[in-house]
Design a protein around this nucleic acid. Structure first.
Lengths: 163, 163
DNA sequence: ATTCTTGCAAAGCCTTTGCAACTGC
DNA sequence: GCAGTTGCAAAGGCTTTGCAAGAAT
């Protein structure tokens, strides 16, 4: 995974989540397990699915139960802290808070997710929505293919095969 | 669903599928059920999921079994006749043969899929891939939001509520 | 005749839920 | 103490698979 610049945010993810839990008519509680999840998830910038998260947190001796992880992930997405990405065979999550708007190049070989940002995309989406009188709520663009590293590996292998 | 121009193709979907089944080392058979599926699917241009297809075909008194439908859908995708679209909560299929390359505006209200084509998108994808030495294999862009019709309905409802 | 396809029932996979015990506020 | 959260086990939805019977070439 490559890096895009982080974005300045005034609140920590934890604060933002607490705010969400308390906001307008919501009377939700901030529990130890939720705190652990938020802390763990925002301690590293990567893409993960529910299973990976559970495994990794268990490895760190953090208490997590599967239903609670799913329930909390849903809240985190709703709170704007995480974004769900549907990869077809897998659903992964990534930070949506404190991180620049971007889309993905998904390597079908190694599974890596390269991030990129292109203002031309936003412009285009904007135009298309306007032309169709479509009220924009969000988008998902995933470009599938083979990343540079895997490509090199393939070329190397091919050369070796020829010898 | 709105219409994009159809594309001239030299083979019927059925012919193309037969060709696929027979091609390079494959010795797959063309069965009655597969034929019915291809015919039915290409008799109308719309987006459908496995369940809808099964229901509709049954309504037409066509014999279909769930496992066979899944197996055949997979072949049709592989053959380049259909494209899978992952909508997050649903997986739908659409024609990928005899139809122009396009992307989607997905209405979250009524579920409708508006199709559009913009060469600027291809250009952008091309550039991004080149910059990242990424070998392109395909992409999926889905723009979420509310379509014009649902928007009008919402505005109308709002007006009525004010009365 | 041989090899592939079918269909049933059953399993798989990921995700959600009912409910009693528990905990944050 | 009350209302929301947890965790188990169980159910759900969608998709795949093992295998014996059937069909295509």
């Amino acid at each position: 995974m490559n890096a895009l610049p982080a974005v300045e945010v005034s609140q920590t993810p934890e604060e933002k989540f607490r705010e969400y839990l308390a906001s307008r008519s919501r009377t939700q509680r901030y529990t130890a397990q939720q705190r652990d999840m938020v802390k763990y998830i925002f301690s590293k910038h990567n893409h993960f699915d529910a299973d990976e998260l559970i495994d990794e947190m268990k490895r760190e001796r953090l208490r997590v139960s599967r239903p609670t992880v799913y329930r909390t992930l849903k809240k985190l997405v709703d709170a704007g802290l995480l974004r769900r990405i549907n990869l077809g065979s897998r659903t992964v999550y990534e930070h949506d808070y404190g991180y620049a708007q971007h889309d993905h190049l998904h390597c079908e070989q190694c599974g890596d997710m390269l991030e990129f940002h292109d203002p031309k995309l936003e412009q285009m989406i904007n135009d298309v929505c306007r032309q169709n009188h479509f009220q924009y709520a969000g988008h998902a663009l995933i470009i599938r293919g083979v990343c540079a590293r895997c490509n090199r590996a393939r070329v190397m292998k091919h050369r070796l095969d020829l010898v």
